[in-house]
Design a protein around this nucleic acid. Sequence first.
DNA 1: TAGTGGTCTAGACCACCGA
DNA 2: CGGTGGTCTAGACCACTAA
Lengths: 262, 262
Amino acid sequence: MSEQSAPVAPSDAQQLLATLRLDRSSPVPLYFQVAEALEKAITEGVLPPGTRLDNEILLAEQLGLSRPTMRRAMQYLVDKGVLVRRRGIGTRVVQPKVRRPLGLSSLYEDLAASGQKPTTTVLSLKVEPATAELAATLGVEPGSEISVLVRLRSAAGRPIARMCNYLPHTISGLAEALDAEALERQGLYQVIRSVGVQLHAADQTIGARTATAEEAKLLGERRGAALLTMQRTAFDDHGRIVEFGSHLYAASRYSFALSMLA
Amino acid sequence: MSEQSAPVAPSDAQQLLATLRLDRSSPVPLYFQVAEALEKAITEGVLPPGTRLDNEILLAEQLGLSRPTMRRAMQYLVDKGVLVRRRGIGTRVVQPKVRRPLGLSSLYEDLAASGQKPTTTVLSLKVEPATAELAATLGVEPGSEISVLVRLRSAAGRPIARMCNYLPHTISGLAEALDAEALERQGLYQVIRSVGVQLHAADQTIGARTATAEEAKLLGERRGAALLTMQRTAFDDHGRIVEFGSHLYAASRYSFALSMLA
DNA sequence: TAGTGGTCTAGACCACCGA
DNA sequence: CGGTGGTCTAGACCACTAA
């Protein structure tokens, strides 16, 4: 009595099923075709938040699929935060507020999404011997060659971030692929992927400090202004360190957005 | 030729299989029993990083399981970042550096892990009518009652964070469960869970600014010192807003650690 | 070519929930 | 009690990778 049950549409999934065409000859897995169609129906409002879906057995036979395949499609959306399932209860569409894309949104994505076109300038790109400290964080021998990259990211004509990246030469082809023009056009991570590196995980630390006179000038802030700092170590499939980045953001115009499931 | 293949132990999993006892009468799922045993063997060094595991069919029959069950155990560890699988290649144990716990580490966990025992003081706990702005973020009517909680977190005898939390009274029993003594002992989220609320997702924004004189005094910093700010909205299963928090951290002594899979 | 993981099927039994 | 999702089985075919 204390809580009102959310709105329930008994079998609205019917509308969906009519329009859903599965392509069994497609290389796209069936469970993924179903999941995409379901998610599209949800984001387009065909299945509004709070809708209770038919149970997985019924849905499976309506689509001509086995239960495990239907189940996998639904589980995919549960992991994505779009659906919620409770044993003995059923499956429901979650409220839209909870449906932000997961993970840490990158600077570029944020700015692109807000309509301002960000630009990148390569301030410096060279090969240097690693200092003891950098060698330790990159897991290479001190003095071995590493690529050092400094970029300035701007949005709406104003500088917003200075990004320093250090890349060990332990990954073949990476050092050669680093090119100022390519970096300004497509971003560091795209370049890294283009040489066949599979990014696997990243450790990031976010902090803050006040700006030095030099930093303030570069970012168009006052001396002593608050800056956000982010340091990131990225690993590939084999556990090799691909990149270490130390970035600086003007806090008055930038913040990190982070969405996660409990 | 360009890259050396990682160390491979052909069938070391044998050692594991000898000690693995599956309890089919346990309420713990078989796939989870297997996954836990595998993970334990990995963290204890029985299966060192880089080890190639036997294929899932072989492992399944050695354990007397079906392939889907064995597969699910392995997939669980892949999702957790402990294993890496590649079609046509096999399954391998990832390097330990990549294996930090995922997600945003909380203040309490960080401090507890580093040996300093954090303490919490409730500065204020009252029920007030919601301002227009707060009502909007909490999704309630302006003027409706909300709980307002202000806490001071300290570590090693020094204040480190001021946390303001706003909780709407839309969830039955929550307002009554908020108790200064309980909050100092077990943390806000534990109290929330104790009244049967299933946390589902959270949106967080991390930024920075300089401290006002008052904030600096409270946190033991100089005026104008850099502060980290974090705002969080937490949702439950039904998409209801459970809590909104606006927190302030002394940046000289605190930072956020964030680990994620690509 | 041989071996791997990726996908899919068609059943089965159980634990949990609400009425 | 009936309905739900959670787990498990014993097969099958396919795509990708390396040698």
